[in-house]
Design a binder for these strands. Structure first.
Lengths: 100, 100
DNA sequence: AACTATACCGGTCATATTATCCCGGTATAA
DNA sequence: TTATACCGGGATAATATGACCGGTATAGTT
């Protein structure tokens, strides 16, 4: 095992992260935020749409700064695990699961 | 341009991050923290030694959780651009910074 | 002394993923 | 028509993650 593929839980967490950032952006444009945060608008869009599940720490920190969000609050909200679900299930390929 | 190489400032920031996490670890072993944080011991070691400049947000968040660190505090301390206190020579040794 | 175990190191490799670019397309509004 | 704003997909360089290797250092054991 070299670099484990993203699990389904990680992908879902990435989607929650994206949705949270998008909500916090409000009516401001992606371009505006991206320029302020010194990240590419494409990168911000991929994060917001949940297509990047585990963005870099500095990337999220810079965006959270611009949006006035606490990183701890972001993590607390995004890292919530649903009750009644397994801690560690059999590792299936999340991308294949999504494609089905 | 597809994916810009890490700048020197980013590399230095990564080294500050690693040194900070190492100091917060105290006398506990890497293995102990890594297992608690659900990350590979190798990954934690690379981050602490500054060999990984921009780790994933969930990775840092999980480690900070185990160490009892606030992500906002970590980012604030690591993202500081110290003016005037910068050493004249190139100092990218995270261990020296740790010793201070 | 020799051995064992823990802890960490740098180097190297393999694979998955990111960050960034580009393109055409849709929707809305001036 | 023009402009802004967002979308999905594709392409690619650079990086992160994870494992392995031999090495060093320390502390405890026999």
């Amino acid at each position: 095992m070299v670099r484990l593929p993203l699990t389904f839980a990680e992908i879902e967490r990435g989607q929650r992260l994206g949705a949270l950032l998008r909500r916090a952006r409000g009516k401001r444009s992606m371009l505006d935020i991206a320029l302020d945060a010194q990240v590419s608008p494409e990168t911000l869009r991929k994060i917001e749409t949940g297509r990047v599940a585990t963005p870099a720490f500095p990337t999220i920190a810079a965006i959270a700064d611009v949006l006035g969000l606490s990183l701890d609050a972001v993590w607390a909200e995004v890292n919530q695990t649903k009750r009644g679900t397994e801690p560690t299930g059999p590792d299936h390929n999340a991308r294949e699961w999504l494609a089905s």
